[in-house]
Design a protein around this nucleic acid. Structure first.
Lengths: 377, 377
DNA sequence: TTGTAGGCGTTATCAG
DNA sequence: CTGATAACGCCTACAA
């Protein structure tokens, strides 16, 4: 891509240029105090003249650490609103070449999602932002990676970092098997277990319980259904808490949660439409996530069902998009940015001492019910 | 941070465990076709048993490339809304230890910015998101870094990547001097120049011109001032275009742009307040960026000035926060995500052929006026 | 204060 | 198809 030029300059080149040994070059960069100011100057000047920059790979090899923290997301987590691009287009050949020279018109920029509130950051983005922010404060670079399970990608990035945080995925257990045992790892939203990995998660039960309390106590709803596949630890915990909470109020949860999938025979749209046709729509849809809730909002609008008048809808997560939907989304917000930061601190070793008798962190954050309009408030 | 355990397993360990040579181990991972299926299986099994993952540092050293693309932001770009944390708190010791074991209450999570629309992604975040997205599609990891100029940070990350994109900064020229000449580089929003670096930028003149046309033609405004320091290439271009456009309409631009700084003797708040006191507030404030505009909105609200009735305000950039302000912000949106993607493609070498006779890309994107309410519409 | 030499874990080359 | 062996670029005792 660039002017090939000659090969990258190394310590040897700089040493020769400056008329010193390679050790002096190294010292000039890393141990300023162990070298005379004069030679240091000479070395730095030579380095600049040659366009030299130390190779992180070589340094990493030499002292056994890369200095980078990593954050990995499996492809499944990267689903965007558009169902058509759920399958991540890998070797993407369909993009037109960059038409440099002329001004690139707006129409070629794929920025038309502007009007779609779902263009807003999702769960992953917000956690990631917190992670990156904390790393910035610590002065450490972050590497972001993604990949499917079949790839060696997780193990691959594990090889580049001093610590790795990983988003949840059905394929996580498999992937973890291929991971080096020696590198510190934080798992987001994964059930506690015997493995040596740290955890950062949210108190799903507490959040769901508070939400159901609001729906039943403050609104008097008694026909409350759950939307969202039980897939994943978070969703399962939320579903369990939904059941428990309703039961506590003496109400009967609907037995089968409504499926939250986007495609396939059990698509949410199809199910809601069937329920609507048979006049069996529940009074409230408690959704496993905000994304489910936003999808439900769309589906209901398409059916001509009014929210919250006919059906109330709630989400979980508190992503920004929920503030822009119509109606605005009542949800249970988890402190995503804080969770991302916590993971970074754990990996960087700045999270403080481990709790008494523990060998790893299990940080459970309290969520908070955020009441907006979709619940009927 | 982790259980120290013994040291990380290497090819030698795996080779011994599997009873083969280290070359076979390497082949098992990288050249499956050049090795018998049987030994490959044996090697992979051994590797799994040992918790082995190849070291990216060593690989990078061996074949001269890291496979990573980088994105660097100078600290100044990371300013957030809160003026109190403009100085980036580096070795941050004030954060409490992570209170694992119990549920971490909301109040300790720093997530209180929830109600502040400025918690939304800013310019840097949106570009970064596009960059990361494109890298994901290309299957390449991204490294995010930041630092001040005095640091070696830019050169430092330059040493870790195969290509580097850099956000604008007053200190950029200095930093570039310390950069290795051999690594492909993309500069965002930087004036064209003789250097070998690629450019990704926006047509400031076209955008500003269209905006002024709207203000003058459709609203009939004739007293239009500019807000925002002239610092930086983008802002300077926007200011120049503001002057030119007004002149073209036969109007007189105010000579001195209103300063957009957050602190110091020329704070925007102070200046607007003085203008207000002397009854000299302009009819329209054309701001260099959305962040300036949002700040102006706050300042005017505090003064009891109605927007857009008394004073109209416009921004530039089109960040998401402008959709949530009161009133919503009329702005000139640049396709930030597309710009981030373009940078990634240039660095990855998937941007297509260079334009005839060019040695580097200079991708200029067209912005688009987004009319909302702050202009009086 | 400066130079020499060995090692870090892979990949690549070249024999066998 | 497999196994030695030499880079790769930097760091760091250790020696001068």
């Amino acid at each position: 891509m660039s002017d090939a030029g000659s090969r990258r300059p190394t310590v040897y080149d700089v040493a020769q240029e400056a008329g010193v040994s390679i050790a002096s070059v190294s010292f000039a960069f890393r141990r300023p105090e162990r070298i005379s100011e004069a030679t240091r100057e000479r070395v730095l000047a030579a380095a600049r003249r040659l366009g030299y920059a130390p190779s992180a790979a070589a340094r990493g090899l030499a002292n056994g650490r890369t200095g980078i923290l990593g954050l990995h997301a499996f492809d499944l987590m990267l689903e965007r609103a558009d169902p058509s691009d759920i399958a991540p287009p890998r070797p993407d050949t369909r993009r037109p070449p960059l038409d440099a020279g002329a001004i690139i018109p707006w129409s070629q920029t794929d920025d038309e999602t502007l009007s779609d509130p779902r263009a807003f950051p999702l769960y992953v983005d917000e956690v990631q932002r917190g992670f990156a922010l904390e790393c910035w404060m610590l002065g450490r670079p972050v590497v972001l990676s993604s990949g499917s399970d079949s790839d060696v990608s997780v193990a691959d990035t594990a090889g580049r970092v001093d610590g790795l945080a990983i988003f949840p995925s059905p394929v996580l257990p498999t992937a973890l098997l291929r991971m080096p045992a020696t590198i510190p790892t934080v798992l987001f939203s994964v059930a506690p277990g015997d493995d040596p990995h740290h955890r950062v998660r949210v108190d799903n039960a507490g959040g769901m319980s508070a939400l159901v309390d609001h729906l039943v106590r403050d609104h008097g709803y008694d026909d409350v259904a759950f939307v969202g596949r039980q897939e994943g630890f978070d969703n399962a915990e939320r579903f369990a808490a939904y059941r428990a909470s309703l039961t506590r109020w003496g109400l009967r949860p609907r037995d089968e949660p409504i499926d939250g999938t986007v495609r396939g025979p059990h698509r949410m749209v199809e199910q809601l439409s069937a329920l609507h046709a048979s006049g069996a729509l529940p009074r409230v849809l408690v959704c496993a996530t905000d994304q489910h809730a936003l999808m439900a909002l769309d589906a209901l609008a398409a059916l001509g069902v009014r929210v919250p008048d006919d059906v109330a809808v709630t989400g979980f997560d508190g992503i920004l998009a929920g503030r822009l939907s119509t109606p605005t989304l009542t949800s249970v917000r988890q402190p995503m940015e804080a969770m991302g930061r916590a993971a970074a601190r754990i990996l960087a070793g700045t999270a403080g001492p481990l709790p008494e008798g523990q060998t790893r962190f299990d940080a459970v954050f309290a969520p908070r019910v955020v009441i907006r309009h979709s619940c009927g408030c």
